[in-house]
């Protein structure tokens, strides 16, 4: 089956998912991001790479943080950024997704950064661009339903590589609501592609999707068992609306069993790092003592996120 993310030369045409991308491309993005981390430390934080290009942040679902980091990344590459918060502007439901895209194409868009509540929405846009022969327009998935959040997955890989150098000897645990998490899916795809020999997921059965083991991970339900001797702990956010209902009895009980406390973290390797995609629910998935502790690399993740997004945008802009 044709991979809609790659062009005829096997180069990245769109960034839609990390599942199905070859290791070379993942590594190339991480390598490209390296020098961009320095740009942030300069007095003038701008490069002319995307000068004159128009990037549309097309957010069908509310987000401040991700949209802002994409905006900063694009601006550091000198692109013109247009933010469209379609979640609020299309409440009248008049326009279809593809009509919106067509309209923005008519405004000479060069790149779309798309967030949508439905899994696969960025694929629909990419397919539409392909079918209408607009091969010079690129799509970056900024989160679609439960499916993928590839730039988050990449910035997590960048962070792991920064602290651990090599992927091939690591044990990594992903903790929490995997069922609803696009972040977890992108992390799993990237970790398995980059050669991490053991990827674990930990959480209650109600928050584990069916056949998760077929994605190449080991499933644990007990925190201490799952965290034993891991090098990296990746916490997931638990959405407020899922804290009490048919999936979980309460946030308190979740914290008691699966919240990351210093005691539970103690069974991991002493040099284990703790990550979180943000925004954190302190006292639900993570204890403040861990979030603010020496093993946490949560703020560096955010900084690296800008460099990684710059890398993705610059690579797409040149392909």
């Amino acid at each position: 089956m044709h991979n809609p993310q790659l062009n005829a030369h096997g180069e990245l045409q769109h960034l839609l998912s990390l599942d199905g991308l070859p290791r070379e491309i993942l590594t190339a993005i991480l390598d490209t991001a390296e020098p961009f981390t320095e740009v942030a430390e300069r007095e003038i934080k701008k490069l002319p790479i995307l000068r004159g290009k128009s990037i549309f942040n097309l957010f069908f679902e509310n987000s401040t943080r991700t949209r802002t980091t994409f905006e900063i990344a694009a601006k550091r590459l000198s692109a013109d950024v247009i933010n469209l918060n379609v979640a609020t502007s299309s409440t009248n439901k008049g326009e279809t997704l593809l009509d919106t895209v067509d309209n923005l194409c008519a405004m000479q868009a060069d790149m779309f950064v798309v967030r949508h509540a439905s899994s696969g929405a960025p694929y629909l846009i990419a397919e539409h661009l392909h079918n209408t022969r607009r091969h010079d327009i690129h799509v970056i998935n900024a989160g679609d339903g439960r499916h993928a959040h590839p730039t988050q997955g990449l910035l997590d890989m960048y962070t792991i590589r920064h602290y651990k150098q090599d992927f091939t000897g690591l044990v990594v645990a992903i903790v929490g609501d995997v069922l609803h998490s696009r972040v977890a899916r992108s992390q799993i795809a990237a970790l398995t592609t980059l050669g991490v020999p053991e990827v674990r997921v930990i959480g209650p059965k109600t928050l584990m999707p069916t056949d998760l083991d077929k994605l190449g991970v080991r499933v644990f339900h007990d925190m201490r068992e799952g965290l034993r001797d891991v090098d990296v702990v990746m916490m997931l956010r638990l959405q407020n609306e899922r804290m009490s209902g048919p999936l979980l009895p309460s946030g308190q009980e979740f914290f008691k069993v699966w919240g990351l406390t210093p005691e539970k973290l103690a069974v991991a390797r002493p040099d284990a790092i703790v990550m979180h995609p943000g925004p954190m629910n302190r006292g639900v998935e993570i204890d403040s003592a861990v979030a603010d502790g020496t093993q946490a690399v949560i703020l560096p993740q955010v900084t690296f996120g800008i460099a990684v997004r710059m890398a993705v945008m610059s690579m797409l802009g040149s392909n």
Binding site: S119, G120, D144, R146, H147, R182, R185, T210, L215
Partner: peptide
């Protein structure tokens, strides 16, 4: 269908 494909694609499953 609630299985590997739906899990991979992040689609809500029908068991």
């Amino acid at each position: 269908h609630d299985g590997e494909v739906a899990t991979r694609l992040g689609l809500p499953g029908i068991p």
